[in-house]
Design a protein around this nucleic acid. Structure first.
Lengths: 244, 244
DNA sequence: CGAGAGTACGGTACTGAGTACCGAATAGAG
DNA sequence: CTCTATTCGGTACTCAGTACCGTACTCTCG
């Protein structure tokens, strides 16, 4: 943030702010692809980028951070978007969908970089763990936002958590399909909408949060038969209590 | 596994197999509580346990592994339980519930150890990440099992994933309540059942996957009412197809 | 009882990530 | 041109984790 308020370009031998960062990241990914993550030391990366090892750790906090840049910034954007979405009376579900699309489109813009990262995270265990951890940070953000929305009463907790998990899962599902090249960018954005509908239950027979009052739960599974046809089976199932 | 087939006790100065492991774990947790995780080196732990540093790494693969023991073993038990549960014709939902209870009860048996771990994982970031990663391993196991059950056709993928996320989320929700002392062991087991019902039943429409072949599925959620009492509600739900 | 095999342990030495600190070069302001 | 702030590079350190080797102990077979 200190470099943004310097309007003039840097015509000197001193590299522009952020340029070193880019060189380092490029060198890192190149080396990772070539010899693998573990076989590449931070010293190698720094040398390839023509800078000192110290500079690497100043630009990125750790070796892993080269691969997951701007993660915290993106998370913050999602958080602020959700915050405005979950104020009482706001169109919460739309806000959630928008926040989620924010994330997806971020990866879409990264393009090959995101795919290279995906290749690495599938191979190296520590990186996969790191990515999973960041996934659960999203879960937290959504959960907290939804909790603020649904209220804090007992029982709502689990509901908020389930919804958050569903949203994150839906997003990751679509993202992975794009990363694997199953769908293109436009298709992914479209699929995200459908996936969210399925995750949140806002689709055909939307089953959004049911009021917390006590009562009988009825789960309707679509079946070609009508009620009377399945009723005997239902009675039988209730009788021996061990549905199979 | 090499120690189990030695029937006689070890009367010598050589400690029994596994005893060193226990000493190390006890020393580790004591030091972690005392000075914190980061401020405790592996050398400190080994010294406190009266063994060499090398022995520590032989007993546990890494510093983190002291805190997460038997994780892989437990994961394997869940996997095998799910495997038998998702063979065609088996009582899948019950199998899932049982597998999940397996995990919960494992932690309940750990008792204070699990709670000490919880305290640590809340404080130290790397440990939290590690735990989250293990959480997502469970997600994978459930997802794969459910995928095998629902079939691989397009569209089922997301459904299996959503279900897996819901189950894991429900479990973690209950587990956290026990870890925080909100409920006791018996209460946690009971809550798990309810949470699973909520996770599997109230989520997205038809969250319970239809079997791959056509037919009528009957899902029975325990309710204090008998069939005739809920029948009107059932008819109504089927009639307008879009409850609330 | 004694020799040999297998194993658990301790110690040393190494690599690599990450941190702290210091000095040099450079850019900007006055 | 001088002073100051910032950035970079280099050195030295801590600590996790690995590889290797020698040793002490136990068990087994002769």
């Amino acid at each position: 943030m200190p470099a943004s308020n310097r309007p003039t370009s840097r015509p000197t031998s001193r590299p522009g702010a952020g340029e070193v960062r880019d060189r380092l990241r490029a060198a890192a990914f190149a080396l990772f692809e070539e010899r693998g993550y573990d076989a590449t030391t931070v010293g190698d990366i720094a040398e390839a980028a023509g800078v000192g090892r110290t500079t690497f750790f100043r630009a990125f906090g750790s070796k892993e951070d080269v691969i997951f840049p701007e993660h915290t910034a993106l998370l913050e954007r999602v958080r602020s978007r959700l915050e405005t979405a979950t104020t009482p009376g706001a169109a919460t579900l739309i806000g959630i969908a928008e926040a989620t699309r924010l994330v997806l489109e971020h990866y879409l813009q990264e393009g090959d970089l995101a795919r290279a990262r995906y290749r690495l995270t599938r191979t190296v265990t520590t990186l996969r763990d790191r990515e999973l951890a960041s996934t659960l940070q999203y879960h937290r953000v959504y959960r907290d936002a939804l909790r603020a929305w649904t209220g804090e009463e007992a029982g709502r907790d689990l509901r908020a958590e389930l919804l958050a998990a569903a949203v994150v899962t839906a997003h990751n599902h679509v993202l992975r399909r794009w990363l694997r090249g199953v769908v293109d960018g436009a298709g992914a954005v479209e699929e995200l909408g459908l996936a969210l509908e399925e995750a949140l239950g806002t689709g055909p027979n939307g089953a959004l949060p049911r009021p917390a009052d006590e009562g009988t739960s009825i789960v309707v599974l679509r079946t070609p038969y009508d009620v009377d046809a399945v009723l005997p089976a239902l009675r039988r199932a209730l009788a021996d209590d061990a549905p199979r």
